[in-house]
Measured scan of single mutants.
Amino acid sequence: EVPFKVVAQFPYKSDYEDDLNFEKDQEIIVTSVEDAEWYFGEYQDSNGDVIEGIFPKSFVAVQG
Rank of each mutant, 00 (worst) to 15 (best):
D35H: 08
E34F: 15
V33N: 09
E23A: 08
K13N: 10
E52F: 14
Y43S: 01
A36N: 13
F22G: 01
F4G: 00
V7P: 01
F55H: 01
V33R: 06
G41L: 05
Q44T: 14
N47M: 08
V60N: 00
P56N: 04
Q44S: 10
A36Q: 10
D35A: 08
S32Q: 10
I29D: 04
A36G: 13
V50I: 14
N21L: 05
S14R: 05
D35C: 13
E34C: 15
F55T: 00
N47G: 07
G53P: 01
V30Q: 02
G41R: 03
A61V: 14
G64Q: 12
Y16S: 15
I51H: 15
A8V: 02
L20D: 02
N47V: 06
D49M: 13
L20G: 00
K57T: 07
Q63W: 12
A8I: 03
E37N: 13
I28F: 03
E42N: 14
E27P: 05
I51K: 15
G48I: 01
F40D: 00
E52A: 15
Q63H: 10
Q26N: 00
F10C: 15
T31C: 08
D25W: 11
G48K: 04
E37G: 10
E1L: 13
Y43I: 06
S14V: 01
Q63E: 11
I28M: 04
G53K: 00
V6I: 03
D25E: 07
A36W: 08
F59P: 02
V7K: 10
K5Q: 06
I54N: 10
A61R: 13
K13F: 12
V7T: 09
D49P: 02
S32C: 15
A8S: 08
K57N: 06
I54H: 15
D35P: 05
D18M: 14
D18T: 14
S32F: 09
E17I: 13
E23Q: 07
S32H: 13
P11V: 06
E42T: 12
Q63V: 15
K24A: 10
I28Y: 04
V2S: 05
T31S: 05
V30N: 01
E34K: 15
Q44F: 10
S46F: 09
F4K: 01
E52K: 15
I54S: 13
K5A: 06
E23S: 08
Y39L: 05
D45L: 13
D15F: 10
G64W: 10
F40N: 04
K5S: 08
K13R: 12
G48T: 02
G64R: 08
W38N: 09
D35K: 08
Q9V: 15
K24D: 02
V62M: 12
G41K: 01
Q9S: 09
Y16P: 06
F22E: 00
V7R: 10
E17K: 13
E17T: 11
F4Y: 04
V60I: 05
D25N: 11
G41Y: 03
S58G: 07
S58Q: 08
V33Y: 08
V6F: 04
N47L: 07
